[in-house]
Each structure stands twice: as structure tokens, then as C-alpha cells.
Design a binder for these strands. Sequence first.
RNA 1: GCGCCCGUAGCUCAGCCGGAUAGAGCAGCGGACUUCUAAUCCGCAGGUCGCAGGUUCGAAUCCUGCCGGGCGCGCCA
Length: 585
Amino acid sequence: MNVFEAMRERIEDSLSVAMRDAGRASVADGADFSVEPPRDPRHGEVSSNVALVRAKAAGMKPRDLAERVADALAAHEDVLDVSVAGPGFINLRLRGEIWRARLGDILAAGTSYGDSDLGEGKKVNVEYVSANPTGPMHVGHGRGAVVGDALASLLAKAGYAVTREYYVNDAGAQVDVLARSLYHRYCQVIDKETTGELPDDYYPGEYLVEAGRALLDRDGLKWFFSGEDEWMPPVRDFAIDAMMDLIRDDLAALGISHDVFSSERELAVSGAVEEALSDLQDRNLLYEGVLEPPKGRADEDWEPRPQTLFRSTAFGDDTDRAIRKSDGSWTYFATDMAYHRDKFRRGFPILIDVWGADHKGYVKRMQAAVDALSGGGAAFDVLICNLVNLSEAGRPVKMSKRAGTFVTLRDVVDRVGKDVVRFIMLTRGNEASLDFDLAQAVEQSKDNPIFYVQYAHARACSALRNAAETFPGEDFSDSALGEAPFDRLDEDEELSLIRMLAGWPRTVEAAAEAAEPHRIAYALSDIAAAFHALWNRGNVDDDRRFVVADDLALSRARLALVRASALVIASGLDVMGVAPVEEMR
RNA sequence: GCGCCCGUAGCUCAGCCGGAUAGAGCAGCGGACUUCUAAUCCGCAGGUCGCAGGUUCGAAUCCUGCCGGGCGCGCCA
């Protein structure tokens, strides 16, 4: 049970009662008012602004309406105390049992506590990573990967049917360059002397030397004496496969696997682009035109050129967009439009893309395109992930591909571990830039949020281990603790932690609705803080330890709270893709 | 020039679709350990929410205009 949602319904009922008693017509219902824990605990346990929001429609002063609703609420058995405060807030205190009973819910549900049907099983496609298959992933890609993956898990927890998708940009000039780079390495492996140095515009990474050897192993000297026309297609395929293997390995190291990989090239050859454009053509959204040069920027190479344009300005874009290059091939935008149309037509009414900050300027045109191609039927959202600034003990890590000092995502994951990387990547909103300090990330102190949260979980496990020693033979399983006498939990700090845990379903839903997985990290930090505070009381006062040797019943009740805290933390870590630890040693 | 993002305590940042006296961590100061791991906790101090208007019962939040910073701006993906 979600206490706040349950109270929302009671407030709705009380509102109707109040209106009827006042001789007013009932006001249309809806979720336009808040039911939430107030920031200041002196304002009660549950607070609502319903009277402020509905006063106008009710034709009453906010405080008058609040008084009436409060009177109706006061009659409810679960409500201990109601007051009207400030401009017309209704503040409630509930019977302790309402809160305590949530411990039973948590112990019964385990880490699936907080699961919600908010999404009503609607299909959502989350496209993330989509790094070009030209080399290993860098740290910036890693952020998009973690944010996308956590968002997908979050939406799944909130009741959406989520598909995790990767768009492989395996078409266009860059994969040809990749193929040439690989071919060059292949030739170098065979005969370094005659092949010569790697040209400047080729991909320089060592990983292509390995791929070159692998190509030699597979095909022998077959391509060494042939012309580019001949070797390009097979070598390109080989290169893309090799790079995708590399990327999949990098992702696996982060614990990420996608459900669907979509190929740009397959899309281009399947005629999907022509279909999409013909859709637009039919609706008169394509035309031949000449774009204005961008203002305020001197561009020597600018030449006015008539080209096929998509009327994206009709959907809020700043300028219309080209769909064909001068060599006759499609622009990236054209294939990407076809791709998004394809996703929509595969039955996803909700599309979410996770992109890097360098693609921010691309958002409007894609929104315009999805709008046009779905006839407004698709909800499309883009999460932009800002830069990651890597540092080491406060000093920025300088990276240069040429100097060979480039730090890859894999380097970082191998250094600090996947769980640390994932957690750190979620400690900021995705649009804010993120400082990632390699030294601080593994520091064992409260400066390090992942340590702080993991430590709380470990401590909880420790308390349970201790209980098993103190009370040999006693059953401290989740189901046994679910039967503990919760009414023994009557101290303010205990109740305050219980209320925090009871708010977990609300946190999950709010984070999912806002598509902000980082909120989970913040919520876990809050819960960990409350848990640590509770723990420490036991250091000051023996009677307040979780395990009290001469009072089994009290111990069981407290351990139920301890276990419930661990389960909620584990539930949040699960959304983040982080494994909870049971001890820190 | 245009577009998007950002500007909150000395520092790094939260702030849920407008809500009550703006929060947390770090740094600073003062306390709590013969530990269910003190790897933690408690307290104190610290703010014209960039500036100026507007919208309204109420604005850090929404709107407009400035100031300051970042990113992007026809055929690269």
C-alpha cells in the first residue's frame, strides 16, 4: 500500500463530503493537488494543498474549504490528528499502525517493494548508448549507458514494459574510414615496410592492430593484393563486427545488455527511409529549397545549394533540415527519422532517447520529425547527458588520443569497479556536468555516496548476523520478522525512518514520471542517513541497540525495521544496477 | 546573430507539475567510541536562490528583459 495514494483517495472523499455539506456542487476530481510528506516535520506526517488548489472552483476561501475537508477527514479511523495551517494546508497525523504496517509490506515484497502500476504496462522504448562502432567506449558514453539503463529499470519498476535498444550507426563515411584504418593495420601486420605510417585522418587506436591480426587470421592474405572496391565491403563488415564486440564487452563490464540492436545500414537498404520520406511527401512536408547560412558565424565554405528539405519549422524547429547529401546519399537525419518511425511502428507509443551533450542541437529537429511521422501519436523525450570531468585526487585527467593518454570507460571500470561507476554516474541530474574523481570514488568515507549507502546496507546485515548469534535458533527470516510486534517501535527516530521507507513507492513513481533516475541515488542517501543515525543511538545508549539481549520481542521489532531498510536500499540499488554488499571488509 | 542548458551557503550540489521558516555533503567550530564495523553520529555557524520587472493568496520554481558561464548552429554521425 502506498500511504500517500491511499490518503489522496480519502482526501478526495472528504472533499466531496465537504462540498456537499456546504451545498456546493462537487468539484471535478483529479490529481492536481499534492499529498506529500511536508518538508518540516512539525507540519505533520502527510500534508495536502487541496484546499488551496480547489478553493476557486469551490467558491470558498482556502481556509474555509480546508476546515471543512479537515472536519470530514477527522472522522476517519486512520487519522489521528488534522490541522489547518498557513494559507490553508491540511496537515495530518496518522495512526502509528498505518505506518508500521508498511514494514510488513516491505518484508513480504522484498526488493520488489515500490513496484508500481503507474505505467499500466505501456510499451516504452529506451534507446541509449548508441556509440558509433569505431572504437572502445569512453567515459562520456558510460554516463549515457548508465543513465539509460537505470532509467529503463526505473520505468520497468514503475510498471512500463520497457525495451532497451541500441542504434548501431554502421552506415556513412565514418565506417568507411574505420574500414580503411583496419585495412591499413592489416597490411602493416603483413608487411610494415611497404605499408607505411597510418594517415592522420585514420583511427589510431591499438585495438585496430588486434583487429587487423584477427582479420589476417580469418582471411589470410586474401585482401592484401586486392583493390579497395573489392576489400571494402567484407573488411567493413569485419570492422563493424569487431567494434560492436568491443563495445558489447565494455557494456557487459558495466552490467548492461540491450534487448535490441538496430542497424542504420539495414534500415537504409530496406527502403525504410524512402517510406518515411514518402509519408512526409504525401503531407507536403518535403520541398526543394535553399537554406540561409547561419548568422554570426563566418563560414568560408558556405555555398547556397538547392536541396531536399524537411519542413521541421512547422513543428517548432529553428530551420528546415536537409535530408540528402550532395553525393545523393541520405543524411544521418533522414535515416534517423526512418529509425524513429520504425520504433513507433513497432508499437512503442513512448520513445526515449539518451544522448550526449554534443547532440543537444539535434533535439528539436528529431522532436519535429517524430511529431510529424507519428501524427502526434508518440510521446518522445530526449535525455541529454552532460560531460564527465575525470579527475584523480582533485587533478584533472588530461586525455589525448594522440599522446596515448586516453582513458577509456573500460579503464575506469577495471580500476574502480562497475558498481562505483554506476552509482557515481547517477549522483547528478543528467543535464548537469559531473565530476568523477577516481581516487574519491573508492574512498571509504561519507564523502563517497556509494560507500555511505553500501555501509548502511552492510551494517543492517551485520545487525542481523549479530542477532542470530545472540538468539541462537531464533528465526529472523523475512517472513518471521513480518510477524514481529511492530508496536514496540514507538520512538520518534524509528517512526521517522519507517515513514521514509513508506514513502519509497512515492519516490519511485515520482522519479519515473520525471524520468530522473538520479533521484533514486538521493533518496537512498537520505534513507542511509536516517539509518546511520538510528544505529548510532545504540552506541550511546545500550537500550537502543537493535539487538537487546534480554528482550527478544523488541529485538525482533527493531530487526524488522533494520531488514526493511536494507530491502529498500537494495531495491533502489537494483534500479541503479548496483549490487548491495553485505559486509565492507 | 539564433537556439538549448546552467547560475541556490566559502566549495560541490539537491529542491518532487508554484506552497509553509530554501535543504544535504564537504570545508570551519564544539561534542559522542572498552563498537550490533565511530568507515558513523549529534550540535553550532554559514544564503539579497545572478539582477530587474511581471503573473497570484503564495515564486528558487512559471513569464519577459538584462548580466555572467557552457554547448550547439547546411551535405559528420
